[in-house]
Amino acid sequence: MIKASIIKEFRLIFSDLHSLAVLFLMPISFMLIMTFALSNKAEDLTKSINLNITQQDSNLAESLLKAYLSDVGFSQDINQQADVTLELASGFENALFADQANSVITFSHATSLSPQMTSLAKQHLQIALAKVKLHIYLLDAGQLSDSMPLAEQMSRVSEQTNQLKLVSFKREENYQAVQHSIPSWLVFGVFFIVLPISITLISESQNGTLLRVTTFPISNTAYFSAKLLAFYLVSFTQALVLMIIGFTVIPKLVDAPSLNVLQLVPALPLLAVTCATAVTFGAVIASQIKSHEQAIVIGGGTNILLAAISGLMVPLDIMPKAMQTIAQLSPMHWAQSGLKNLFISDSDVLSLTTALPLIIFSVICGVLALWLFELKVRKLQWK
């Protein structure tokens, strides 16, 4: 009977194209879009910022500032509306070397420029000013010659200020984007199993299947457990497909190194626990939903809200401290942070402290879901 119940659930799930789209197409699309969004390098971002520099008087320092900002990609098209405007005060060059620092640049930006892009522009302005001061100092000290082409002078100054040559990076920037983005959207997709579970329970309530089951030689607990087992197998298959695509196909699209499929093996235990958490949590919500509209609003809405506060949509390390604290209470955060740690640290051992909260949460949700399902069937019998 339990085997027949599992086969029935598989037929229902794979006959519903909407459910399959929610479980597979939507998470793959999210992974692709968000990985592309995070894969941009700083120099690519500066090219989108149009810079306008106004000055009271023309001098070497002002020319050098323009040149160094152009060198890192800032556009300076006077025919376009400026994203960032730098107004240089009179005596700008002399003020750069004054004993007491005073404001000699007024920085303003368009309201349409995001806080992140504004911060990026400020950082590059600070670096450019440091290069300008060093450039003028080297000219005065005779270490640079006025007869040298400006490009060669700038190259020598940049070489002296580039301290990254002293640092070796273990991973490429695009590789880091893949490691952070893929686990987040994989977990987000897995938790959408709540919608197929909800739709199945609603259909069985409306067509009388749940009432007929009470006449079968199987308990409500066994029937519901078989149903959840079927959804668990679907969820685990979904997670495997998403992980393989995420770590082998998507990196090729963003020019990042691909992982060997065998490197995904250490993540399988955590993936199994994550799927159990998603299915039992989804079952708790599904057992209380009474219509397809509620399934979309409550089931889908809960997932989106959890993703928002768990650091899936916005990186946790740029959130305010209060939201970082709230995120620690979310099962989505436990799952995605565990997967990230496995790949970022190159660890091949699943930490018990990572899996234990998910296991405890799954057990609590599983017991609660069974109890709520029993109540649901009793209410149907009373009607």
Results as ranks from 00 to 15, higher is better:
12 L>W: 10
12 L>P: 08
16 D>Y: 09
24 F>H: 09
27 P>D: 05
32 L>A: 13
34 M>C: 06
35 T>H: 12
36 F>H: 03
40 N>C: 04
48 S>H: 09
59 N>V: 12
62 E>K: 02
67 A>R: 05
68 Y>L: 07
76 Q>R: 01
79 N>Y: 07
82 A>Q: 01
93 E>F: 06
99 D>A: 14
103 S>G: 08
108 S>K: 08
110 A>N: 12
125 L>H: 00
127 I>N: 08
128 A>S: 10
133 K>M: 14
140 D>N: 14
141 A>W: 14
145 S>G: 07
155 S>A: 14
156 R>C: 06
158 S>D: 13
158 S>K: 15
158 S>V: 14
162 N>G: 09
164 L>E: 00
170 K>M: 02
176 Q>H: 13
181 S>V: 02
185 W>L: 11
192 F>R: 01
193 I>G: 04
193 I>T: 05
206 Q>N: 11
219 S>M: 07
231 F>V: 10
241 V>Y: 03
260 N>D: 15
261 V>D: 13
268 L>D: 15
271 L>W: 14
276 A>Y: 14
280 T>E: 01
286 A>Q: 02
287 S>P: 03
294 Q>T: 02
300 G>R: 06
303 N>E: 09
317 D>Q: 08
320 P>K: 01
321 K>L: 15
323 M>E: 12
325 T>A: 14
326 I>Q: 11
334 W>S: 10
336 Q>W: 13
336 Q>I: 11
337 S>L: 03
343 F>M: 13
349 V>G: 02
355 A>Q: 04
361 F>I: 02
365 C>V: 08
370 L>C: 12
376 K>Y: 05
